[in-house]
Every structure is written in structure tokens, then in C-alpha cells.
Design a binder for these strands. Sequence first.
RNA 1: GCGCUUGUAGCUCAACCGGAUAGAGCACCAGCCUUCUAAGCUGGGGGUCGCAGGUUCGAGUCCUGCCAAGCGCGCCA
Length: 600
Amino acid sequence: MSAIFIVDIQHSKSMKQKIEGLLLHAFGALKTSGLIDQTLEPQIVVERTRDASHGDFTTNVALTLAKAAKTNPKLLAEKIIAALPQDNIVTNVELAGPGFINFFVDRNSQYDIIKRIHNEGQRFGLSTIGAGKKVQVEFVSANPTGPLHVGHGRGAAYGSAVADLLNAVGFKVHREYYVNDAGRQMDILATSIWLRYLEICGEVLPFPSNAYRGDYIRDIAVDIHNSASNEYRRPAELVLESTPPDEPEGGDKEIYIDALIARTKTLLGTSLYRDFFQMGITTILDDIRDDLKEFGVNYQQWFSERQLMEDNSVDTAIARLRAGGHLYEQDGATWFASSKLGDEKDRVVKRENGQYTYFASDIAYHMNKLDRGFDHIVNIWGADHHGYIPRIKAAITALGADESKLKVLLVQFATLYRGEEKIQMSTRSGDFVTLRQLRNEVGKDAARFFYVMRRSEQHMDFDLKLATSKSNENPVFYVQYAFARVCSVFRQLDGKGWERNLPLGMNSLNLLTEEHEIALISILARYPEMLERAALQYEPHQLIQYLRELATAFHTYYNAHQFLVDEAQIRDARLNLIGATKQVLSNGLGLLNITTPESM
RNA sequence: GCGCUUGUAGCUCAACCGGAUAGAGCACCAGCCUUCUAAGCUGGGGGUCGCAGGUUCGAGUCCUGCCAAGCGCGCCA
């Protein structure tokens, strides 16, 4: 008897596909009977209706095809309708408006979705459309010069949601963080920490205007001093020996900090400098790792830029460009002729001083990605890097690959407010709200939900006051509350001395005839197609929108009807419906790494 | 100046490959708790979809021009 609510293959195929099949059949018939031209290639698009009075599904194929068929849309629609084969699932077909064909689906077949959700459980909604293709998703990749701030948080939430969505629809996803552990920023970091360290040792010296001045710098210096005591101490007068003036003294802050970096390297020597440098970066990177992990963001790989430099990948990449004739020398530097490949101007890859530019290692990094055989490469960048896209695409082309393999998704920075007050942020000055602070204030769930709620390219105002308020203004509670309410109903069942009879409920689904029930069922049925679209369009906010809609339909239903009624058949049918709702809420929130508390 | 992104209700945002009467939340107004959690529900007001043209059966969505905001235009990363 357990087979009662096993869904047969026919039914698990989506209604949408079935209707597309019927339409294809109709076109075939029209062509053979000569009623429409053989050469017409109809693009059949079946959509769910937005208005129940338009039936369940609709197609505009008569409208789009009318011109090519040299007829008017209504006439064509009539022909199509007449040619549609009989089907026991479609109860009615109507011609509507300027030429829409609306399909009304038999209610009994719509109930099957409840059985399907029950059978598939956590797997409901997953698909195989990705066909196991390998996708690399690189995101956050913030320089390890300080803790992640709320701007990075959006990239983290969005990036992991995109990765998880792609995974859910059948792609093999590789999540990666590119660690910029080489270059001048890192030297500034090491020098900043060292200067704080010297202060702790008792040396008196001015702090450079261009150094990192956040509290975390001092914290790291304290840690180092605790473990290494005065090992790295050097007298202040030696540090400042023959250094140019800093900006406040009328000098150039860039030149000044570079001079201090040079002094640091000289005074510590290669080996000690390297140790010191490494302690700084390790501390910060560990912090970032913990932070992201606690935020529910996990990576398969942390990819080191320094590694690329050290294993000659950069040399190899540049050599490959040279072999392809994409490089030339000018003014003592080596240039990549990216303007021939869609960039606005050529770019330097190796400076006059013999050092590679950041761009050079990025070329090497992308060569590495290509060589690893990913079918798709997804980079998630802050929107301020948009000007960088053409040169990276040019590099990929020059390396002999198809640049369409690379998809760059931009995330706008969130503008932070505390109520009316706009919060200015600067990494250098250390004056920013960290992701950790945000998480501590609002919690992981609200932070993730809030970040992903809006389209990524949309500028977003993040009001801390609102996000930190644990009130009903926070939409995550609304969705979680729907889940908790279902749990509560099931808990009440015992208290009333009833037992849930699952098969009885499944056999009684046709008793679910209330408007609210039909509406809820229809939303549940949309979950798989919504998930697929959200994934393929890299738009996790669609999932959030959906969950809010589902929660609304449930809350409305909850207020309109009692579930735990005396009549067992209705009761069990309703329990199966809200059980399915619970499952979909859980699947959706789970995908977003948001918890599902059983009571609130 | 050039390029990219954005512009939708008082505020924050949706709108599926161009579809039928542009939708939510917040705020505002009026209601609903002896009944499964009121972090909920019901009803109401609120819109020149930045502006002006164009494309077509049909445009918030596509094209052109303008306006405004953000960002980018380094031998920085």
C-alpha cells in the first residue's frame, strides 16, 4: 500500500513540458494538413499565468508567430487550439486577449506535487540541468590586509548563494578564494604591524599617514610581541634614518611609505622580514577564514598569488602571450596589446623596474583556471572593478581560450547607514564596520537573507539600525516563522490525541478545494522551475522572493482555515499540504544556509 | 570628456526570452486574538515606471538622445 502515493513518471514530468508537447503536436498536425507553412519554426514558450482567471498556463506563440504565418494572432490561435490533441490533464483551453492561449489544468493532477514533494524530500527542486559541468566560482578574494567588512559580506553571501544554486541544479562547483598575498599592499601591511610592534617595544616614532591604522594591526603587533618579545625591535632613529617627509610634513605619502618599507626590509633582513610578514598575513587570513566559515561560506580552495609567482606560472603565462605575438616593449616596460582584443587601451604586464604588475599574475591565475579544465569560470567582483573585465577577457582570448567561458558578476557595494546617518568607510583608516560585527549584531541568518534579498548589481542601502532590529521588519523572521508554525501544528497533533495518517491524507488530497489551498499548491509546484531560473541567471534573490511568497501564502492559509479539524480525511490532507510547505521552506532556506528554527 | 552600472509608490525593493489591470515589505489609516504561536491575517489610500523620441499586435523591459546618481578610466592592487 505504500505505493499509493508514488508518483508515476508521466506526472513527475512538469506540466509545462507536457503542454509544450501538446503544442508541438498541434503544430505538427497543422503543418501536415497544410494549414500553416512547413518552414515555420515556432518558438514555443509556456509560462505560468500571473492571474488565476487566465488559467494555469499560457502561451503567446500565436502572437509571436502571426507575422511569419501571414495571419492575425487570433485566427492562428484558433487553428492551434483546434489542432491540440485531447489530454486528460488539460480540462479547458481558451483564446484570450490579443491571442494568448490559456490552459486550465485538471485539479486532481495538480495534487500530485504534494506526493512528489513528500517522496523527494530534501531532493525536491534539485535538477540535473547543469549536467555535471565543472564551474569554478571565485568570490570575496579580499586582500588579506584586514578583517572583512560589510562590503565583502555582500560578495560572500551572494557568491556562496550563486555557488550553492549552481550546485543544486547539477553543476559541479568549485568555490575558490584568490589570496592576494604578494605585492605592495602586503608590504605596507607588514610595515604597519612592525611600526606598531616597535611602539609596544617602547620606541617612539610617528605613524605613517598611508599605513594601515586599524585596531587589528595593533592587536597583531601585541601578539607578536608577546611571543617574540624584542626580537624584531630596532631603534627608532635607525628606522627613520634618511627617510623623506610624510604627507603632513609636505611630502608624498606614497614615497614615504615605500621608503619605510625599504627601511623595514633592510633593518630586519630578508629572513626576519619574511617571518614577520608571514605572521601578519597568517593572522589576518585565519581571521578571514573563521569569519567566512561562521558566515556559512566554505571554499574548496584558497589560491595563493605568491604561489603563482614562485612556481613561475606568471613567467609561463607571459611567455604564452609573447609566443602568440600579443606583447611588445615600450618605454622599458612590457605591454600586452589588449586593445586589439576589445580593451580600451594596452596594459603593462612588466614594469620598467622588472616587476610584474598585478594584472600579470591575474593573467597567470586565469590561465591556471583554464588549464584546470573548468567548463565555466565565474568571477564575482566588486562593481568598482568593472573596468577590469575587458582586459581579463582579452587575456583569455590571447591565451587561446573562449572568453565566453568567463562570466563576471558584479556586486555593488552596500552604502551603510545607521538610521539617517551615512557611515563613511575606509580600509586604510580602519574606520569600517566589519562583517563580524554585523553578524554579531544581526546574526548569520538575517545578514545572509538581507544581503541576497536584492539583485547584486542593485545599489543597496544597508541600514544597520533596521537590520539589527529584531523586529518583524526583518523579513527573514517572516519566512522562518512560517516554518516554525508548521512545526507547531504537528506538535499540537499529539496534544489533541490524534495521529497523523499519511496515506489517508494522500488519498484525500481532492478535499483540498479551498482557494487558499489551491494557491499554496500552485506556489509549491513552481519551486523547481524557479530554482533552475535563479541558478542559471545567477540570481539568488529570486529564491528569496519565492520564499517570501510561499510564506505569505502559508500565513494567509493558516489564518483562514483550521488544519487540526475533527474530520480525519481533511485533517490529514491539510497536514500533508503544510508538510509539503515545510519541506520546501526547509529546502529553500537550507540552500541559502539559513537556519529553520522549529519554534520561535 | 569616455566607459560600465543604476533610476519603478513617501522609504527599501520585485516584475520570469517583450505580454493581459506594474507587485511586495516598511510607513500611514481602519479592522481581526476564550479556536493550530498576532514575529500573523483582512481591507484602504498611495505610481507621468528619470525625461523625450523610436521599433511592434503589445515596451518598466529592446534601440537612440538627453537628465541624475554611483563607480572606473595608473608602469596601484
